[in-house]
C-alpha cells in the first residue's frame, strides 16, 4: 500500500480510522490524568465535582496542593539531584567511550563494544539487585576487616545514582558516538596543521561539533533517570525519589494530588523535550 498506487476507498478509510484510534489510545490515559487534576473531589474518578486549582495551590486539609505538600516537594528535589548526577556521569563516560571506539583500534575492541551494549538487555530489576548484593558484600567486608562503615554502599542515593548510571551510560555513549561518526576528521587535521596541539584541536573543533549530541544525551539521561523505577526501587534508602514516593502513595489509594504532580511532570518533560529538539535543529 502506497499513496501513488490507487486503493479501494473503503480500505484507505479503514486504515486511517485505525491510525486515528491508535492515537486516541495513546493519548487517553494521559488526558484522563491531566483532567482529573482539576476535579474538586477526594478521588481521581467520576463523578465530576467541579473545577478547582486546589490540588496545585490548596493550603488546608483535606485539599493540600502540590506546592504546599512538603514530602512531594522534597522527593522532586531528590529526583532532580539524582538526575543531574547521573546525567553528568553518563555524558562524561559516554564522551570518553565515543572517542575510544571511534579513534582507537585495539585487541578486544569488538567484545568490549558488545559488553558496553549489554546493560540495555539486562532487566532493570536485575541490575538493581546485582549492584545491591555486590555493594553490601564490600560494605560488610570493610566492616568485618576494619570496622569501617561505608555509608555510601548501603541502600541510598549513592547506589541509586550508580545503578541508574550503569545503564544510562550506554545510551549516552550511543548518542554521542553517532554524532562523532559523522565528524569530518580533516577539520581536526586542519587545526593541527595550523599549529594547534592535539588537545587544543579536540577542545576547539571536535567538542563544539559534539555539543548538540552532548546536550541531547544530557537531557535524555536526565529524563530517564527522573522516570526510572525498577533499578531505583531495589537500591533506594530513606530518601525516596519522586517515582518511588508516588508509588508508595498510589498503593495507599490516590487523591487528585497525584494527578496534579503527574500533570506537572508531563509539562516539565515536554518542555525539556522541546528544548532538546530545538538544540538538535541548530546542530
Amino acid at each position: 500500500m502506497i499513496p501513488t498506487i490507487p486503493q479501494p476507498r473503503l480500505l484507505t478509510a479503514a486504515y486511517t480510522a485505525y491510525v486515528v484510534t491508535f492515537f486516541v489510545f495513546l493519548a487517553l490515559p494521559l488526558v484522563v490524568v491531566a483532567v482529573f487534576a482539576f476535579n474538586d473531589s477526594q478521588f481521581p474518578s467520576l463523578p465530576w465535582e467541579g473545577f478547582t486549582w486546589g490540588w496545585f495551590f490548596g493550603e488546608e486539609r483535606p485539599v493540600i496542593g502540590v506546592f504546599h505538600e512538603r514530602p512531594i516537594l522534597r522527593a522532586i528535589g531528590t529526583s532532580a539531584f539524582v538526575a543531574v548526577c547521573v546525567s553528568i556521569l553518563s555524558v562524561g563516560v559516554g564522551l570518553s567511550n565515543a572517542f575510544l571506539f571511534n579513534r582507537y583500534r585495539f585487541p578486544g575492541q569488538g567484545i568490549l563494544y558488545v559488553f558496553m551494549l549489554l546493560p540495555l538487555v539486562i532487566p532493570g530489576i536485575v541490575l538493581g539487585i546485582s549492584i545491591l548484593v555486590f555493594s553490601s558484600r564490600i560494605a560488610n567486608g570493610a566492616w568485618d576487616i576494619a570496622e569501617w562503615d561505608i555509608e555510601a554502599l548501603r541502600p541510598g542515593l549513592t547506589l541509586v545514582i550508580l545503578g541508574q548510571f550503569s545503564f544510562i551510560a550506554t545510551i549516552s555513549t550511543l548518542v554521542i558516538a553517532a554524532r562523532l561518526q559523522k565528524f569530518d576528521r580533516s577539520l581536526e587535521e586542519a587545526a593541527l596543521n595550523l599549529g594547534a596541539s592535539r588537545l587544543t584541536a579536540v577542545r576547539t573543533v571536535t567538542l563544539p561539533y559534539l555539543a548538540p549530541a552532548m546536550i541531547g544525551a544530557f537531557v535524555v539521561a536526565f529524563l530517564m533517570s527522573f522516570e526510572n523505577f525498577n533499578t531505583t526501587l531495589m537500591l533506594v534508602g530513606s530518601d525516596a525519589p519522586l517515582t518511588i514516593a508516588m508509588f508508595d502513595r498510589l498503593k495507599e489509594g490516590s487523591t487528585p494530588l497525584l494527578n496534579a504532580v503527574s500533570l506537572l511532570l508531563m509539562l516539565g518533560s515536554s518542555l525539556l523535550a522541546l528544548v532538546m529538539i530545538a538544540f538538535q535543529r541548530r546542530g
Binding site: L30, P44, S45, S262
Partner: peptide
Amino acid sequence: LFLLCLVPFWVSELVRTFGWMILLRETGL
C-alpha cells in the same frame, strides 16, 4: 505523527499506569 508517538513516553511509566487505573477501575471512566 512520529513526534506524537514519542510524547507519551517522555512521561513517567508511573503516570501512564495511573492513567489506566483511572480509566479501568470500578468507578472509572
